[in-house]
C-alpha cells in the first residue's frame, strides 16, 4: 500500500490553575506590589527571602517579617544563551541566586545583562521594578548591575 504524508496536528493542553498563596507568600507578594521586598526571620535568626510559612529546621510557624534591601550580591548564576518562550527575556540573560542586603538566604531571579561577561559571582545588583506592579514575582522585572 502507498504511504500517505504523515499527518500532524497542533494541540495545546492547558491547566489553568489559580493557587492560594497562604498568608506568608501572600504578604511577600502584597509587599512586592508596593515595591518592597520582605523576608521572614527563622528560628535561628537568619532572614529567609522569599519568606517561608514554617521554619525549615524546626517546622515552627514563622511570623516575623523583615524588610530587606533592593540590592544584593550574585552568589551564583547560569547564563541563558537561548531563551525559551516561557523565559522573562527574549534575549540572553542570567538566572542568579541573589543574596539581598539584610537577607541570609539567596533568592533566585533573573539578571539582565548585555553579555555573559557582565555577570559574575560577587557582582552587586539591584532590583528593577515593573512599570505596573500587580502582586506577583514579576513585579521585580529583573535585577541589573549596580
Amino acid at each position: 500500500m502507498s504511504q500517505p504524508d504523515v499527518l500532524h496536528q497542533a494541540f495545546e493542553l492547558g491547566f489553568t490553575y489559580t493557587r492560594s498563596t497562604g498568608p506568608v507568600v501572600g504578604r511577600f507578594l502584597t509587599e512586592l506590589k508596593q515595591r518592597n521586598i520582605v523576608g521572614i526571620k527563622g528560628s535561628d535568626g537568619r532572614v529567609i527571602v522569599p519568606p517561608m510559612e514554617y521554619d525549615p529546621d524546626t517546622a515552627e510557624e514563622l511570623s516575623e517579617f523583615v524588610d530587606v534591601g533592593q540590592e544584593g550580591e550574585i552568589v551564583s548564576y547560569a547564563w541563558v544563551k537561548e531563551p525559551r518562550e516561557a523565559h522573562p527575556f527574549d534575549k540572553p540573560f542570567a538566572w542568579a541566586m541573589i543574596l539581598l542586603d539584610g537577607a541570609d538566604v539567596p533568592m533566585i531571579h533573573c539578571v539582565a545583562a548585555d553579555s555573559e561577561d557582565a555577570v559574575s559571582t560577587g557582582a552587586r545588583v539591584k532590583a528593577v521594578w515593573a512599570e505596573e506592579t500587580i502582586g506577583f514575582i514579576t513585579d521585580i522585572r529583573c535585577f541589573e548591575r549596580v
Binding site: 492547558g14 491547566f15 489553568t16 490553575y17 489559580t18 493557587r19 492560594s20 498563596t21 501572600g26 504578604r27 507578594l29 502584597t30 506590589k33 502582586g135 506577583f136
Partner: peptide, 8 residues
C-alpha cells in the same frame, strides 16, 4: 492583600 495567583 494578595491571596492567590494565576499559575496556568
Amino acid at each position: 492583600v494578595i491571596t492567590g495567583i494565576e499559575a496556568p
